[in-house]
């Protein structure tokens, strides 16, 4: 019995949220719960055979623990074989191009390539010329699609669990993104995903960390934390990239903490039901206070749990749908 008109997955790759329709985003979110149940099984085997015999290559050109282990675990829970490559251990240091490296991986019959790269557009460039499924695990300041998907999934699940409506959507829900929006691919992907899903997004941070004309993405921008939080259902604290501090983008960390940190004091501006997210890794007591990060209003660890399920859903949809694009 099909209740809703089924949306079928047709894309070979997942490069960004910007290219996805609302229906495609919802298909991924609707596919994830079954995989969440697999991870939470009490039985011996937390695994399903959907990618049995397939090879997933994690190819990370930037440091990452959370995202890489999440993808690796997702692949293993789908019974795929996994291989990890990092930039420092690959022939990249000997001058090999990305195209050549990928052609060599594909010659060993890899099915899914999970790529993180510091250059925006690297996954897009490779996806066009190669037949394997490419998943963007973060490219420069461009996008981090699976992070945005797991964030949207986490918010939707929290809504559904906290209300009587088991089919609640993010339509009309207020989300405040706080911090370094300018340099954050997480923020970009989240803005695309949340606005497509009908949420009302407010971005807030020091003026130098808000992109010029960010309103054109369909969000409200403010430098007042009070204004951003006053109607927020979800508060998303972005990571302050300390490596960028000292470039004069904001006067001092102390001032940032005073004006923008999510803590017990600033949460007084927000409604009582507002919940807090963070993409990790947290700079404790910089953008998010320890008390709130570890408290009952934090969804941080649910994000991590849901991340594995979302990545399972993405890999399954890419690898087990017959691509109509190619």
């Amino acid at each position: 019995m099909e209740q809703a008109a089924p949306t079928f997955w047709t894309k070979k790759d997942l490069i960004g949220i910007r290219e996805l329709s609302r229906g495609e985003i919802e298909l991924i979110l609707d596919t994830a719960p079954q995989f969440l149940a697999v991870s939470k099984r009490i039985s011996r085997i937390k695994r399903v055979p959907l990618l049995q015999g397939r090879l997933v290559v994690n190819w990370f050109h930037e440091p990452s623990t959370r995202t890489r282990t999440s993808f690796e675990l997702a692949a293993k829970r789908l019974s795929a074989d996994t291989l990890s490559m990092t930039a420092s251990s690959s022939s990249h240091v000997k001058g090999e191009t990305l195209h050549d490296t990928l052609a060599n991986i594909e010659a060993m019959h890899a099915d899914i390539i999970v790529l993180r790269h510091s250059c925006a557009g690297a996954p897009h460039m490779l996806a066009a010329d190669h037949s394997s499924h490419i998943i963007n695990a973060g490219d420069g300041r461009h996008e981090h699609p699976t992070q945005a998907l797991l964030d949207a999934f986490t918010m939707r699940l929290a809504l559904r669990e906290n209300s009587a409506n088991k089919d609640a959507t993010l339509d009309g829900v207020n989300v405040a993104l706080i911090g370094d929006v300018e340099h954050s691919r997480v923020a970009r992907s989240n803005i695309f995903a949340l606005t497509k899903l009908g949420a009302k997004v407010t971005v807030c941070g020091p003026v130098a960390l808000l992109p010029a004309q960010v309103e054109k993405l369909g969000v409200r921008a403010t430098t007042s934390l009070k204004e951003a939080l006053c109607d927020a259902d979800f508060i998303y604290a972005l990571r302050i990239q300390r490596e960028r501090q000292g470039k004069g983008l904001f006067p001092s960390l102390r001032e940032y903490v005073k004006l923008f940190r999510i803590d017990r004091d600033s949460l007084r501006f927000a409604p009582d039901h507002a919940l807090v997210l963070h993409p990790g890794p947290i700079n404790r007591d910089l953008e998010l206070s320890t008390e709130i990060a570890d408290g009952s209003r934090s969804l941080v660890l649910q994000q991590v749990t849901n991340g594995v399920a979302i990545r399972m859903a993405v890999m399954h949809l890419l690898a087990n749908s017959q691509s109509r694009q190619l």
């Binding site: 019995m1 099909e2 209740q3 809703a4 089924p6 079928f8 997955w9 298909l27 609707d30 596919t31 719960p33 079954q34 697999v38 399903v48 055979p49 959907l50 399954h316 949809l317 690898a319 087990n320 749908s321 017959q322």
Partner: peptide, 18 residues
């Protein structure tokens, strides 16, 4: 659905939990 051997052939990997 997560154990079927014909998800691929169905041309949609739709396991959305309906």
């Amino acid at each position: 659905t997560l154990y079927r051997d014909d998800l691929h052939a169905r041309s949609s990997a739709n396991v959305a939990s309906r």
